[in-house]
């Protein structure tokens, strides 16, 4: 095996094989996936993101939240995500078709956020968590997302408001053709 062309051709074929077999085949299957109604005539899901939430996604990426938080709920039997209350159904590919950059994540220092918007009670609760996380939490406070109000309380600034809107928009609690919710 002392022919450069042979080695390079061989290595090229191995790269091409996995590229074609995984990525091009995956693209053929999912490349054109779009929004769809769970039942004929129903509303299209996933819902369009509000403009503020799109800005908030930038803040989420900037701060590197993905280092500790995932956004994917595994099916029952493949981990205990649903039992943990992180989702009401497993995530499916269609849930992510509107996202310009998906932040699935691969490490959970904190809980999964795929369906966080459905379990967060109010903006104030999210703001309180961002400005002063509960004792014992590994999450740092984010003082730069808040301004001091006249009464001394912390009010979310522009970026804080956007991030809260984004977190609230994270919902996977609707039926989709691939994952129907149990009635």
């Amino acid at each position: 095996m002392n022919n450069l062309n042979l080695i390079l051709a061989g290595v090229f074929s191995t790269v091409a094989a996995s590229f074609g077999g995984l990525l091009l085949a995956g693209h053929a299957q999912l490349g054109a996936l779009g929004r769809a109604p769970a039942e004929e005539g129903g509303p299209l899901f996933p819902a369009l993101e509000p403009g503020l939430a799109i800005q908030g996604r930038q803040v989420y990426l900037q701060l590197g939240c993905v280092a500790c938080h995932t956004q994917q709920v595994r099916p029952a039997g493949q981990g205990s995500d649903i039992a943990q209350g992180w989702g009401v159904r497993p995530s499916v590919a269609r849930d992510y078709v509107l996202q310009s950059q998906v932040a699935l994540g691969n490490r959970r220092v904190g809980p999964d956020l795929a369906n966080y918007g459905a379990r967060a009670k109010s903006d104030a609760e999210i703001a309180a968590h961002l400005s002063a996380p509960a004792a014992g939490s590994a999450m740092p406070a984010f003082p730069t997302l808040f301004n001091q109000g006249k009464d001394g309380s912390l009010q979310p600034n522009e970026r804080g408001t956007a991030l809260i809107a984004y977190l609230k928009s994270l919902r996977q609690d609707y039926s989709s053709p691939e994952a129907k919710l149990k009635q």
């Binding site: 995984l22 990525l23 999912l30 490349g31 054109a32 996936l33 590919a93 849930d95 950059q101």
Partner: peptide, 14 residues
């Protein structure tokens, strides 16, 4: 030219 949704995660794992 980002691919559609979760395909990005697939490309990334590759």
């Amino acid at each position: 030219c980002p691919t559609n949704g979760v395909l990005q995660a697939l490309v990334h794992s590759w």
